[in-house]
Amino acid sequence: MHELSLCEDIIDQLTALTRRHGAKGVARVSVRIGALAGVEPMLLEQAFQSARIDTVAERAEFHTEWVKTRVSCLACGMDAETAPNDLRCPACGSHDTKLTRGEELTLASVELLVPEPEVDPVSLDCIPAPRGH
């Protein structure tokens, strides 16, 4: 159950982002999970439901994007999707492959709740006075 500690890291990053952008909170989070990142999307989502309480992400919608494993074959040059537990080249069967996708665990995008724009007293002063009279 390391999903809960990952959610704490996600919340820390969301808190920093919210502060940096002067936002009120987070409306939506999207996390990209590789098939070999050691994370179960459903467990991560459940963990997020408890980790977000009393944080900037309290009302955030949680979204995950699953990334399948891909290898690039150094023997025949094939670039192809594979099963996460079989990284041999699906075309020529070579073991000489390089994993190109499937290990990522990324905070992909965030939608922030921006405060209602307040009327700036300085800019009010700049409005030209009505003409006439």
Binding site: L6, D9, I10, D12, Q13, L17, H21, R28, V31, L105, T106, L107, A108, S109, V110, E111, L112
Partner: peptide, 13 residues
């Protein structure tokens, strides 16, 4: 929507 592309394990790493 802000695209972030930030490693979740960045702190641990």
């Amino acid at each position: 929507m802000v695209a972030i592309e930030q490693n979740i394990l960045a702190k641990n790493d």
